[in-house]
Every structure is written in structure tokens, then in C-alpha cells.
Computed example of a mutant assay.
Amino acid sequence: MGSSRAYPVYRSSDPLDVYAQSQRLCALLDSRDAGAHVGAELRTVADVQRMVKLLPDMSYDPDRALTDPVTGDCLFFTGRTLPVDPVELESLLPLLLNDEFVSGGVEASVEASFVRALGKGPATVGWTGRWPDDPALGSFGSPKYDGVQAVFNSDDSDWERWADTHTVFVHVTKFGDLDRAQWLAAQIGGEVLGEAVLGW
């Protein structure tokens, strides 16, 4: 039980730079799970339209509970069931995209397109896997916790706090592993930028 510990290891004002550095770290994983987790706070109609065009089957949920005026049922949407009319769509904002996808080998192009489509709201892409064992560091892979996370327009792993920069986090065992985080940061010319925080 428990959550990973996430160390911030790279920060930039360029979202595509953060995405590229996160991919360099993903390449160091001993094994990598298929697909990725994506999340974004979509604040404008244009944000939603760009995302729906890219990811029409994902869940898009209002950040407050909305109910059908006739049935009283909670409203949930996919990109295909969202209103097309911009005025109706605007009444639902902000929308939260928080989903996973597995795509037969083309996920990298979808992930890069996701980053290009982002607006100003906080967002994230996360990849899970297993870091290789490194007995010299006393570090051993933990497939339940290991991975890489790129956070956009935010500086925390929960991507709740807005920032004008973008950050890469490495996730390690629930006990933390500063030595591994420092080594990983060095591989991309970064450094550990703060204390470990609660991860996924």
C-alpha cells in the first residue's frame, strides 16, 4: 500500500522541452507499461475543441457536479457526447480530462500532440514502468511506484497549483530514493529541485 515519492528533476518555460526530457527519462526505464495517463484542466471552449479533436473517446467531466434537469442523473461526457454548440459547451467549463489510453505503438505521437494542444490550465502526462536495479546505489526497481511524470502549467505532482512553468518528476518507491532521483536528474542535465512529494 501507499504512494510513490515524486522528485522534481527538471523545470522549463517550454512545454515541449519538458516533454522531450521526460521521454529521455522514460528511455531509462527497465520496462515501461503500455500507454500513458493524461490529465488536463480545460478552461476555454478552444481548449476543449482541440482536445476532443485529438482524444474524442476520453472522459471530459465538469469540475462540479452537474445533473440532468429531467432525470436528476449526474452528467458525464466523452468527447463524442459533449455539446457541439460553443455556448452550451462554455456553460460546462472548466472541464477535466483525466483518463488513460493504450495505443498500439503510436502513443508517443498522441502524447506530443496532447502537449501541443494544451491551453493555460494545469495538465499532466504520466508513464509507469520499472527502474533498473542498481545495487551500487542501493536502488531497486519498484514496478508499483516507478515512472516519469511531466506536469504542465503547474509545479506540483498533483497538478493543482498553477505555475507559469512546466516540471518533470521522477517517481520512485514509497520510501523515497534520493540517490536514484539525483542520478536520473543528472542524465538529463537537471537536478533534484526540492523535497520528495506524495506521488501516485
Rank of each mutant, 00 (worst) to 15 (best):
D17H: 01
A185G: 08
V102H: 12
Y7I: 01
P69N: 12
E191I: 09
D146W: 02
E111A: 14
L137G: 05
A27H: 09
V9D: 00
V84R: 13
K144Y: 10
P86S: 04
F114C: 08
V38T: 03
T167M: 00
V115R: 00
W200F: 09
D68F: 00
S91K: 15
S59I: 12
G189A: 07
L184N: 03
D177V: 05
L42P: 00
D33V: 00
T167S: 01
D134Q: 12
P86I: 07
A65D: 14
S154F: 02
L54G: 00
V102K: 13
A136R: 11
G104H: 13
R43G: 05
A40Q: 11
K144I: 07
H166K: 03
S103V: 10
D30P: 09
F140C: 06
D134W: 12
D158Y: 10
Q23R: 15
D155S: 10
S157T: 05
L82Q: 03
S103L: 14
G121V: 01
L89Y: 06
L75N: 06
T124E: 14
V192G: 01
R32T: 11
C74D: 15
S103Q: 11
G176C: 04
S22Q: 01
P132S: 11
S139V: 07
N153T: 02
G189Y: 04
G138K: 10
G105Q: 04
L55V: 12
V70E: 13
G176Q: 01
Q21E: 13
G72A: 02
S154C: 01
A163M: 06
T81G: 05
A20I: 01
F77A: 07
L66F: 08
F175D: 14
D164E: 15
G194F: 03
A27D: 14
L82E: 01
S13E: 12
I188E: 04
D14W: 05
F175Q: 14
I188V: 14
